[in-house]
Design a binder for these strands. Structure first.
Lengths: 331, 331
DNA sequence: GCACACTTGGAAACCGCTTTCCGAGGAGGT
DNA sequence: ACCTCCTCGGAAAGCGGTTTCCAAGTGTGC
């Protein structure tokens, strides 16, 4: 491995000069020496050792992103948004996937802390377990006390900058829109009770129905993914005219279940999701949902994390109800 | 930031002992001292500085994965496979996205080299430009000469371990299957001519048709993504009975174009893709395609990269034709 | 032509950790 | 009881850079 010292020797200059030429220093180096150093570096194929730089500078140019599952397009979009924003700033990205294990999430924060990454982004729903959340907060506090910056996409439960999708409001808005189409008998494919995102959406939906004086929806719990939606859809009763799956991926599973059982959507039952996943735009029938600007949210989270403010910022992001083929007006 | 020295002082031991206790050393440390060190580390909230460890050890526990686009489920699946395999080995993952810019790919290899990552995975099609490929090879060679390991998912053009999908053969197999259904007038939504994956699939398909004595397909070039498929589909002529899009995402775009123009699939035209993207399994109509075990390929690439052999391994991965609703038997 | 500030190159300390090399103490063999 | 071998703790030399501090060289104002 070629080191800076090799380059300096080859160029006949000191280590300091070589360092100043090759890695942006505030100090100037004369044109002649500069050229010699650059040529030597090029000839030798020098690549700076970032570990050494990080150690010497006391700061790295890496950020960490922790998501639940990269193959879930929801997280892919969020991560992509954040990664593009990072690339613009010349930051490298370390990605960790937890596969929905909160312990993994805590472990990742510790690891990224050890890496002394510049910022950590925690992307995804919090869980309702105060003990787990507390430990995560502790780990984050430790990281931040060492100068680390952090932000979260999800619920404001960690005491860090947060981009918070308006899950309750979005779901409530959706409920009102669906009720406006004449639906009164609802089922909610609610995901796991301990997932705050899922619970908020479910509660927002149910709350709006109550405000409208409509009967409470039939709430069916299950996993937060496609198969969870598929399974939960099996339990939807005959009388239901409209099903709300708390995310698009579950809604797709529900649609598949309907198709297999010969239930037509939207003729026999209306189905709506949440998120407006871009890769689902060609789904048949087109899915009614609540649009969230995922890429922008990811990018915004990175901005917040990197911002030099010391007060904690929490930004609500509104969802927009998008009515498409998968729902119909009743009667 | 609390350092190992702080811990050692607090525990009343030397730096060496503290290091041996906290970071897996081969050497034993007595139970009494070990306990003191662990307690001190815990009290102080010590987190090792990985940059320093990497520098001292001369090896990091990070790997780099370079993909074109994380929001493309093809890459998400490959990356996820590799990341799971990495997690099992206790490796962290740095992900870079090139957005299909080969220069970015080269730049990432340089950066990951600077990071002294343990291995680099290059995921995605090569381009047909020998100059670009040459520069990438050079950069990889430099990295490897410094002890770095590398592997590629795609074509064997880089002189590193490669997991190579059998694009030609898979496409040929698909062509034979479609011809077996009675189709004779084909169009190929071929993607960009310079993308080797796209070109191979197109060539394999056309070659098989020729072998069967069938007329050459109508080849339509365009971008390698959903919108590319959508646009290319507009140029498919009336006489075509079967369209092969060189990847699933393009096929989905083509299906969307058909739907909008009132062309029924498969009644009016059959459509097939390539890859068998899992998240498309609920698409209507279900897509005929060539299945590639993407997650396994990603995991395998990591294994190859990490393997201690010095000979270059190239593994072909066969695709499996899966006939689904989007094609029909003719006549 | 001289004092002065300013620029530029180099020596060396330091970033936080690993690991080699020593030395001391204890166990085991005879 | 003596010698050897082994175990375990500590001092110190790196790992590859950055940056501070000096010193020498350069140009300017009078």
């Amino acid at each position: 491995m070629v080191t800076l010292e090799d380059v300096a020797r080859q160029a006949g200059v000191s280590l300091a000069t070589a360092s100043r030429v090759l890695n942006g220093s505030t100090r100037q180096v004369g044109a002649a020496l500069r050229a010699r150093v650059e040529q030597a570096a090029d000839e030798l194929g020098y690549r700076a050792n970032i570990a050494a730089q990080t150690l010497a500078r006391g700061a790295s140019n890496v950020i960490g992103i922790v998501v639940h599952d990269l193959t879930d397009p929801y997280f892919a979009a969020l991560a992509d948004g954040a990664m593009r924003a990072a690339a613009i700033q010349g930051l490298l990205v370390m990605v960790g996937t937890t596969h929905r294990d909160p312990e993994q999430e805590i472990a990742y924060v510790a690891t990224l802390n050890a890496q002394r990454v510049r910022a950590v982004l925690l992307v995804g729903s919090r869980v309702a377990d105060p003990a787990v959340t507390g430990r995560l907060r502790d780990e984050l506090a430790r990281y931040r006390s060492g100068g680390g910056r952090a932000a979260c996409v999800g619920q404001d439960l960690l005491g860090v900058d947060t981009v918070a999708p308006a899950n309750r409001e979005g779901a409530a808005e959706l409920a009102r829109a669906l009720a406006g189409l004449g639906h009164t008998r609802f089922a909610v494919l609610a995901g796991p009770p301990h997932l705050v995102t899922a619970a908020d959406r479910c509660a927002g939906f149910a709350g709006a129905l109550e405000d409208l004086g409509l009967p409470a929806p039939h709430v069916i719990h299950g996993p937060f993914d496609r198969d969870g939606g598929y399974a939960a859809a099996q339990q939807v009763g005959e009388e239901t005219t409209c099903v709300f799956a708390v995310n698009d991926v579950m809604a797709v599973g529900a649609l598949a279940a309907c198709r297999e059982r010969g239930i037509r959507v939207p003729e026999d039952v209306s189905v709506a999701g949440f998120d407006d996943i871009v890769t689902l735009r060609d789904h048949v029938p087109a899915l009614t949902t609540v649009r969230l600007p995922l890429k922008a949210m990811g990018a915004r989270a990175l901005e917040l994390a990197l911002a030099e403010t010391d007060e904690v910022a929490v930004e609500q992001v509104a969802g927009e109800v998008v009515l498409r083929e998968s729902v119909r007006r009743l009667g």
